[in-house]
Structure formats: structure tokens, C-alpha cells
Design a protein around this nucleic acid. Structure first.
Length: 994
RNA sequence: GGGUGCUUAGCUCAGCUGGUAGAGCGUCGCCUUUACACGGCGAAUGUCACAGGUUCGAGUCCUGUAGCACCCACCA
């Protein structure tokens, strides 16, 4: 519980951990926590409403970065909103075992101890990984708690938990039973460093500088004329040349030459037509290989001849299949030349082998030429190693049957992408999807549930016993089996996450209640990796989509738009933004454990420049509000600490207005009508002032705006609506307006109305802000609620505000709009004249009946807000004294200049106003002068334009008249004031002189 | 090669179904006014990338161009 007195200073570091601990201990995060607002009693809410989000599971041994914190904020805001709406709400937490990533971390730890993974047994190594998981696994939980994430911790899951592992095996077996999983020897993406296969998605290609080697493959003498080629300038001459006798092939990978089993040309390429079917002698090996024709070959590229290495290139593999070519594997798993290579080259690493082969070819005169060449190099996303297409036995998911329904689900709108555009990206990938290689040659992960007997027969089963039983049935006796050593791709288990976490394959109540989940919140970078696969798996096993919507957000970058990365040294830890960090600690953090230690110095310099004093503590609420503001539809979201700083000030503002509100409400709590009574004043009984009705009306509009923004996942718009209302309407105007009414000497009824309004509006605002700023709102609400007659143990479970309780009040809006306009008119004069603090008299000219009425109602208020010494209405025929002027509709506001305002300054100010007005006037006139506009535009637009014109004309007249008057004054005072006068004023008076 | 997005104030970005260009930060004045100097009041600042088109009217819709990002893809 918070201290009884509200401390003068807002201290998020004290409030936030305490409040979170209280929530967690009270069990408020679980669906249907006691005291949760009842969905069925809330009008408009669906009965038995459920809401569920599953968290994208972060790597269990990792730490949360800015992107996670952003994502968690969005999910928490959604979760809290729906929970307050009275829906049974579950935010399902958990972590991922992240196969390769985690295994690599542990391997590196072992290396530091001088141990190689392969020196340990598999069991010992896996035990090490578990130990590391136990040791580091708490970090994410601590971070999420600090972020205020209201996940149901009692349901926390890990992809390698027994339950989830059972789900993985079940899924594998079922897919296998349906014929959708198969094992096959194919060319895969092989990582020669990690010694495992990878899926297509785990390979990143980037352009790198390389060479194009033009190699001469001698023709085997035959009956047709020998041909020399490779001279693009004279292909025809070459074709008829009698010079023997080689073909030139262009390659970026000469070392694979040893595995060539053909040379291909385009069947329509006249240069080589005659050679099709003949043979070349493969250099260094002496093997003879055929010249074949295939449409794949582009005659315009290189020499028009392609060496075909089916065992080491995906295209060549396809060509090899078409032409029934043999596959010759020349590499070992770690990409050294194997025994298929000539003895002198065996055992050489691939790039050394390349150099050696080039040397040998050069020596034999078989290099035609070497060109620099940019090419796409595939690298493993984890190891960074150049990927080798490599022939191995792997497990695949046959994807076509799964992709069809997954495409249909998005087409039909059963899954909706937000923003909608991302569905295009999804479709594009899904329509070109390839079978998914799911086996990995790792030790950390879900072991593939397949067993082999000595004859190589495969038994896919849920357990070793089942497999044995199958083998027994087959052989009629027990046979020894060994389990497949491979594990599954991490994303296989991730694909099951939306239902495996809810208990599948068992038919649990949670699964029935919360599947399909409502929304997946994720970055666009894992649409293919994860989103698509969840949709396919969900449809395959649950016969239903895993989520109704996919909210795709942008990626958090640093203030300069750079991706945050360890090697760039620009990473900002969300916790450091919350709690602050001293410069030395920050420097240490950024320069420790760098892959390239030489970057440390420049990282340190940049960090010192950007954060000379480290990072100040901002608190979670300020950070979360910043994330909300960042949640635009943009792909790149720049994280700038200046914004967090601004939002800390916003928190401070909220804190201080709370101190004010609590101060006034606490003193006389018994006077305050109950919130229920205040809420029941939709018909605006007389005791409420226009300001009371206005702020309620504005609150209603804000609730609507927030509701709409949240429904569209536009948290940026929600945040700005909240900011605007809180600061610019509630604090700047309403609180100022009601201060007089709250004074002890004020009229009791008005005071009670003001207190009730302030109390209910502020209490409602706290609820509206809560999903984005959970801590400060709870801290204030705990103190405020009792004072306004609101019961409930926590704001977390208080009902979500309803716009209908705060209906729009056009009359009050107009009334306060007028007050604001008058006050701003006076303030503008005073501000411009640097006399803001002086009390000045205000004269009113051209006051109509309506204005007089308003003046009667709000005179004291105007005096208070604009700091007026008196207000006097000029009689119709009364001449106004020299004055600075502002116009509000027909009303003229006059602040007498006498002794306060220099005529020259006022003249300058008026000139500026009149200039602006003239532009508007001209535009409006032109518009209305255009008959086509008058005829074609909607009537209300034309009417509005006419009204504007009238207003501009009135201003024009008023300002001109005023300028004439002030000019006279300015001329009178000019001799002594020439130097002091503003340039514009001087010019104006010069122009004005006859 | 295919696809997607972006270009609005000095900076970072909003601008919904076309109808008076906005916010935050920064800048410049004035102000210790009893919630807040983490504050108050006021001010300045835009050829909405460019060129066409549709329309009475375009930051907004259409076409094209340029620049900048990103994604997918097997050209040796």
C-alpha cells in the first residue's frame, strides 16, 4: 500500500517495484481474478468474453532488448484494457529454447574453459545447457516484472517443458502419419562451422565482391570440328575455327570443379549447338563429362557455358536431376576436400583449395581470364559462415498441403494482418514456399521421434517403447533400435506455441476458452519464420487459426535510425532507461564481450559523446508511454531518449495535478457527492458549471478516441489523445478554471459540483491511462478512489471507462470555447507586450446579446484567467480609448495602452495580424467567387466558407480601424520613440504618412 | 529480376473516408501566479520530394520520375 501522504516528488523507482509486487502477490494477473469487472454486466460486452495473447517467447537464456520491451508494452496495454473491460483475460508468458543460439552460447562458455563440446557426451552437454538455463533464466522474468507486464506467471511455459515436448512429439507423429513429414537425401543449406543443416530462412544472402573465373575445359577429340569459345566478340568465327579444342566455362566457385559431372549450354545457342553430346575432359581429374543442353543456361552470361556440379549447387542439382547426372560430393562436412579430390588437394579447406586449384589451372594454361564479380554469398544467420549446399539425409515437412489452408485463412479474413499490407508479404512468401527442412544436427532441442533398426528401417513413434513395438511387429521379434540423433528446428516447436502452451494435445479448459487467441503482436521480421508456421500448424492440429489478428509493428532503432546491435555499440537496455545507469557502467556494458574488440575505442567515444552523464532514471511509465507514441505504422521506429524525458515530465505533471486534486478532495471528502451521482448527471443538472460539463464532454471525446485507437492498434494516437486531454485540457484549463470555485469561500453548491467533477473526471482519466502507465495510475488511484466513493482493490480490475458516461455537450463546448478565446485574446496582447503579469482592464466593444449573457456568466472567470483588473462593456456610441485589440467573433477586446503598451509595438502586432487575415480573406473570397465551388461543393462546406468569409471581413475592418487609430498615436510618440520602435512599426508609420 | 515502404517545421513524427497544415523536442521573449520551473503565458518556422492527371477543391486519390530504406529470388 502506498504511503498515506502523497510525496511531493514523483519517484518511479520507489513506486513501481512495490506496486508490481503487490499486484503479483494479490494474483491479479490470472484470468478472472477475484474482483474482476464482470463482462456480462457491462453493457455492450459479449457474454463469457475471453481475451488472450500469447507472448512471442524470447530466448530463455537471453535478455530483453528494446524491441521486446516495446512489444511487451503493446501486449500489456491490450491485456490490461481487455481485463478492465471485464473479459476473462490471459496473457500467456513463456520462453523459447532457441536451439542453435543457445547451444552456441554454451559452446562458447565451454571454449572459455578450454573444452570442446565434442569432448563431452551429449548428455553432459545438454545438462550444461539446462544448468545455464537455470542460471540465466530468471533475467527475463525480472525484466518483464520491471516493465509491468501483467502476464499470468502461474502459466509460464518453456518450449522444452515436458508438456510442450509431448506436444512437439505428438505434432511430429501426426504429421508423419498424414504423410506430411518425410526423410530424404537432398541438397540442403549446410553450415560447415556449426555442422548442421539450416532452413532456407536461416540463410541470409548478401552481395560480396568475388571473381568470375573463366576456365578452359579441353574438348575430348571427336568427329565434329573442334571449337574454341569464350570470345564473345567473335562467337561465330570461333565456332568455325579449327583451333582445338576447349570450352570456356565461367564460375564463381572453381573449387567445385572437382565435382562437375557435365557442362551445360543453351540448346538454342548457335555457338555450341554442334557440341551438344560431345565431351570435355575435366581438368585436374581427367574425368570425361558430357556437354548437355538445358534452357536454364543464359547464353548472354559469362561464356554461355556452365559447369554443372549437382552435389554442390542448387541449380546444378536440379539440372542434374533433369539429365540424370551423377552426384559427386567433394567436401567433408566441415567443407574440406574429401577423398574424391586428387590426393594433393585432400583435406584442404575449401578456400585454400580454391587458391591451389587456381594455381594449378594457371600452371596448365587453363585460365582464360579472371573478372571481378559481385555475387550473392549465402551465410548462416547465426554463424556467419558461408553456407555450403551439401548432400545429406534430413527430415522435411511437406509444406504444400499445409500452406493452402493457411493462405485461405488470410484471404478469407479469418486472420487479419494489421496493417493490412503485410498480408501481401505473407502471400508472396506462402505462394512460393518450399518444403521445410526441420532436422538439425545439434544436441540442444527436441530429439526427433524416429528410430532405426540395423537394416535402416525407420520407426516414427511417440516413444521408444512404441517404436520397439512397431519394430517387433515388423520383424516378429525384438530388434535393437537407435534413435535419430538429430533435433528439430526451434521454429517447429514455436509453431505450436499458441496451443501447446494452453495444454494441447490434451483438451484443457484453457484451450477451449482461449484458442484461437485474439492477436499476435510481432515484428515483420518473423512473419515467415513464425507467423506463417503458426497459422499452418494451428490449422493442421486445431482446425482453427491460432489468432484472429496479427499486429505487425515496426522495428526499434536508435535515435539516428541505426539498427541497435552489440557490434555497433548503440544498444540501449530498457532497464537502464527505467532505472538509469552511470556512464562508467554504460561504457563497460557496451564494450564488454565484443566479437571485434578493436571497436571498443570508437564505441566508447560515441557513447561518451551521446551520454556524457550516463542515462538518467526515467521510470517504467515514461518508457511505456514513449513506446506507445512510437507505435505508428512506420517500419522503422526511432527511439530517442529525449522523448522518454518528455514523458517523464508528463508523469510528473500527472503526479502534481494529482497532488492538487487530492489536496482539495481530501480536505472535505464528506462534502463530495458520490461518483455515481456525478455519473448520473448526463442531463447536466444546474449545479454543474459549464466548465464541469465541458471537461466531462472532452473526457467523453477522449475515451472515444482512445477506444478507437486501441481497436486499430494505433497506440500512438491513443497516447496523443491522452496527453492532449491531460495536459492541455484538464491541467491547463479545467483545473485553472475551477480553482476559484474550489476555494473555501466559494459557493457551496458550485464547490461541490467542481469537486465531484474533478474527482470523477480524474479518476476516470487514471483508468483510461492505466494500460499505458500502469504504475503511476495505480499509485494515485489508491489514494483517490476512496475520496470519490469508488470501491475496488486495484485500478487493474476497475472497469474500463465508457464514453457513454460522458456524453458530448456541444453547448458547454461552445461556452468554454468562447471563454478560452477571450482569455487567449487578452493573453496574446499581454504576451506580445511582455506584460503578462500585469493586471489590466479589459474593454469590450460590439458586444451582442449573446456575448453580454456570457459575460454575465463568466465575467469573474475571465478576470481570473486573464488577470484583469476590471471588465467594462463599451456603450454602443462610446469612443474607445487607445487600446491594443483582439477579436473574438464580433466581439472586440480592448486593452487600453495607457502607460503599458508602446503604440509602435501594437502597430507591428496589428500589421502582422492583418496580413495573415488578408491571406485567408483572399482565399475565402476566391473560393466563394468560384461558381463551380458554390454549385458543386456540399452545402455545409459552402456555408462554412461563407461564415469564415464574414468573420475575415469583420476582422479586416476591425483591424484596419485599429491600425488607423494606433498609427496616429505612434506618430505622436514617434520623435522620442523612434529607436525603440519595432522595424515593422516604423515602416508602417512611414507608409501611413501622407 | 520481383515485391513493399518512406519523402510534411531545424530534428522525430501524426494528418482517418479529399474541404482552414498539427504535436513533441529544439529556438526566441516574458514570468518564482498558493499542483507542477520536470512549470506557466506568448511567439517564430512549411513551394507537404518532383512532374503530370482526376476534381469546384489534392499533403490526402491516380500515373510517372527521383532519392532513401527494406524483403524475396537459383543467373553460373
Amino acid at each position: 500500500m502506498p504511503p498515506a501522504e502523497m510525496p511531493k516528488t514523483y519517484s518511479p523507482g520507489e513506486i513501481e517495484p512495490r506496486v508490481y509486487a503487490h499486484w503479483e502477490a494479490a494474483g491479479y494477473f490470472a484470468p478472472g481474478a477475484p474482483g474482476t469487472p464482470d463482462a456480462q454486466s457491462a453493457p455492450g460486452a459479449k457474454g463469457e468474453a475471453h481475451y488472450c495473447i500469447v507472448i512471442p517467447p524470447p530466448n530463455v537464456t537471453g535478455t530483453l532488448h528494446m524491441g521486446h520491451a516495446f512489444q511487451d508494452t503493446i501486449m500489456d496495454a491490450l491485456t490490461r484494457t481487455h481485463r478492465m473491460r471485464g473479459e476473462r483475460t490471459l496473457w500467456q508468458p513463456g520462453t523459447d529454447h532457441a536451439g542453435i543460439a543457445t547451444q552456441m552460447v554454451v559452446e562458447r562458455q565451454l571454449e572459455a574453459e578450454g573444452i570442446r563440446r565434442t569432448q563431452l557426451s551429449r548428455e553432459a552437454f545438454v545438462e550444461r545447457v539446462w544448468a545455464w538455463k537455470e542460471q540465466s533464466g530468471g533475467t527475463i522474468g525480472r525484466q518483464m516484472r520491471r516493465l509491468g507486464a501483467s502476464v499470468d506467471w502461474s502459466r509460464e511455459r518453456f518450449t522444452m517443458d515436458a508438456d510442450l515436448s509431448r506436444a512437439v512429439i505428438e505434432a511430429f507423429v501426426r504429421l508423419h502419419e498424414r504423410g506430411l513429414i518425410y526423410r530424404g537425401k537432398r541438397l540442403v543449406n549446410w553450415d560447415p562451422k556449426l555442422l548442421t543443416a539450416l532452413s532456407d530462412l536461416e540463410v541470409l544472402s548478401s552481395e560480396e565482391q568475388g571473381s568470375l573465373w573463366h576456365l578452359r575445359y579441353p574438348l575430348v577429340p571427336g568427329d565434329a570440328g573442334a571449337v574454341s569459345t569464350g570470345s564473345p566478340e567473335s562467337p561465330v568465327a570461333a565456332a568455325t575455327s579449327a583451333t582445338p579444342g576447349y570450352l570456356v566455362v565461367a564460375t564463381t566457385r572453381p573449387e567445385t570443379l572437382l565435382g562437375d559431372t557435365a557442362v551445360a549450354v543453351n540448346p538454342h545457342d548457335e555457338r555450341y549447338r554442334a557440341l551438344i553430346g560431345r565431351r570435355v575432359r575435366l581438368p585436374l581429374t581427367g574425368r570425361e563429362i558430357p556437354i548437355i543442353a538445358d534452357d536454364y543456361v543464359d547464353p548472354a552470361f559469362g561464356s554461355g557455358c556452365v559447369k554443372i556440379t549437382p552435389a554442390h549447387d542448387f541449380n546444378d542439382y536440379a539440372i542434374g536431376r533433369r539429365h540424370d547426372l551423377p552426384l559427386i560430393n567433394v567436401f567433408t562436412p566441415d567443407a574440406r576436400l574429401n577423398d574424391a579430390a586428387p590426393e594433393a588437394l585432400r583435406g584442404l579447406p575449401r578456400f585454400t583449395a580454391r587458391e591451389r586449384i587456381i594455381e594449378q589451372l594457371t600452371a596448365q594454361g587453363l585460365i582464360e581470364r579472371i573478372e571481378p564479380h559481385m555475387l550473392m554469398i549465402p551465410r548462416g544467420d547465426r554463424s556467419g559462415e558461408v553456407i555450403e549446399p551439401y548432400l545429406t539425409d534430413q527430415w522435411y515437412v511437406s509444406i504444400a498441403a499445409l500452406a493452402g489452408p493457411a493462405i485461405a485463412a488470410v484471404e478469407s479474413g479469418r486472420v487479419r494482418f494489421v496493417p493490412e499490407n503485410w498480408s501481401k508479404t505473407y502471400f508472396q512468401w506462402m505462394h512460393n514456399i518450399q518444403d521445410w527442412c526441420i532436422s538439425r544436427q545439434l544436441w540442444w532441442g527436441h530429439r526427433i521421434p524416429a528410430w532405426y533398426d540395423d537394416a535402416g528401417n525407420i520407426y516414427v513413434a511417440r516413444s521408444a517403447e512404441q517404436a520397439s513395438a512397431q519394430a517387433h511387429a515388423r520383424h516378429g521379434r525384438d530388434v535393437p533400435l537407435r534413435q535419430d540423433p538429430d533435433v528439430l528446428d526451434t521454429w517447429f516447436s514455436s509453431g505450436l506455441w499458441p496451443f501447446s502452451t494452453l495444454g494441447w494435445p490434451d483438451a484443457t479448459p484453457e484451450l477451449a476458452s482461449f484458442y484461437p487467441t485474439d492477436v499476435l503482436v510481432t515484428g515483420f521480421d518473423i512473419i515467415f519464420f513464425w507467423v506463417a508456421r503458426m497459422i499452418m500448424m494451428g490449422l493442421a492440429f486445431m482446425d482453427e487459426v491460432p489468432f484472429r489478428a496479427v499486429y505487425v509493428h515496426g522495428l526499434i532503432r536508435d535515435a539516428e535510425g541505426q539498427k541497435m546491435s552489440k557490434s555497433k555499440g548503440n544498444v540501449i537496455d530498457p532497464i537502464d532507461v527505467i532505472d538509469g545507469i552511470e556512464l562508467p557502467a554504460l561504457l563497460a556494458k557496451r564494450t564488454a564481450g565484443l566479437m571485434q574488440p578493436h571497436l571498443a575505442a570508437s564505441i566508447e567515444r560515441a557513447t561518451r559523446r551521446q551520454f556524457p552523464n550516463g542515462i538518467a532514471a526515467h521510470g517504467t511509465d515514461a518508457l511505456r508511454f514513449t513506446f506507445a507514441q512510437l507505435a505508428t505504422q512506420s517500419r522503422d521506429l526511432r527511439f530517442d531518449l529525449a522523448r522518454v524525458d518528455a514523458n517523464r515530465k508528463f508523469c510528473n505533471k500527472l503526479w502534481n495535478v494529482a497532488r492538487f486534486a487530492l489536496g482539495t478532495l481530501a480536505s472535505v471528502a464528506q462534502e463530495v457527492p458520490s461518483a455515481a451521482a456525478a455519473t448520473a448527471t448526463a442531463t447536466a443538472p444546474p449545479m454543474f458549471s459549464a466548465a464541469d460539463r465541458w471537461i466531462r464532454s472532452r473526457l467523453g471525446a477522449t475515451i472515444e478516441a482512445v477506444d478507437q485507437a486501441v481497436a486499430e492498434y494505433r497506440f500512438d494516437l491513443a497516447a496523443s489523445a491522452l496527453y492532449e486531454f491531460t495536459w492541455n485540457e484538464l491541467c491547463d484549463w479545467y483545473v485553472e478554471i475551477v480553482k476559484p470555485a474550489l476555494r473555501p469561500e466559494a459557493q457551496a453548491e458550485a464547490r461541490a459540483a467542481a469537486r465531484a467533477t474533478l474527482g470523477s473526471v480524474f479518476e476516470t482519466l487514471l483508468r483510461l491511462l492505466h494500460p499505458l502507465m500502469p504504475f503511476i495510475t495505480e499509485e494515485i488511484w489508491q489514494r483517490l478512489a476512496p475520496l470519490v466513493g469508488v470501491t475496488g482493490r486495484t485500478i487493474m480490475l476497475a472497469p474500463w471507462p465508457r464514453a457513454a458516461d460522458f456524453p458530448r455537450d456541444a453547448e458547454a463546448d461552445a461556452e468554454i470555447g468562447w471563454v478560452r478565446a477571450v482569455v487567449e485574446g487578452v493573453r496574446q496582447i499581454k504576451g506580445e507586450m511582455d506584460i503578462a503579469m500585469r493586471r489590466v482592464p479589459l474593454l469590450l466593444g460590439h458586444a451582442g446579446h449573446a456575448e453580454l449573457e456570457r459575460l454575465r456568466r463568466h465575467g469573474p472567470l475571465l478576470s481570473y484567467l486573464a488577470a484583469l483588473s476590471e471588465i467594462r462593456v463599451l456603450a454602443p456610441d462610446e469612443a474607445a480609448p487607445p487600446a491594443a485589440v483582439a477579436l473574438v467573433g464580433e466581439l472586440t477586446l480592448l486593452v487600453p495602452m495607457a502607460g503599458l503598451i508602446e503604440p509602435a509595438s501594437e502597430l507591428a502586432r496589428l500589421e502582422k495580424l492583418v496580413q495573415k487575415n488578408r491571406q485567408e480573406l483572399a482565399r475565402a473570397r476566391a473560393k466563394l467567387g468560384n461558381q463551380e465551388f458554390v454549385h458543386n461543393a456540399p452545402a455545409d462546406v459552402v456555408t462554412q466558407e461563407r461564415e469564415r468569409l464574414v468573420d475575415f471581413e469583420r476582422r479586416e475592418v476591425g483591424l484596419e480601424r485599429q491600425i488607423q487609430q494606433v498609427r496616429v498615436l505612434a506618430q505622436q510618440s514617434e520623435p522620442g520613440e523612434r529607436r525603440g520602435g519595432a522595424a515593422g512599426a516604423t515602416r508602417a508609420s512611414a507608409e501611413g504618412a501622407p
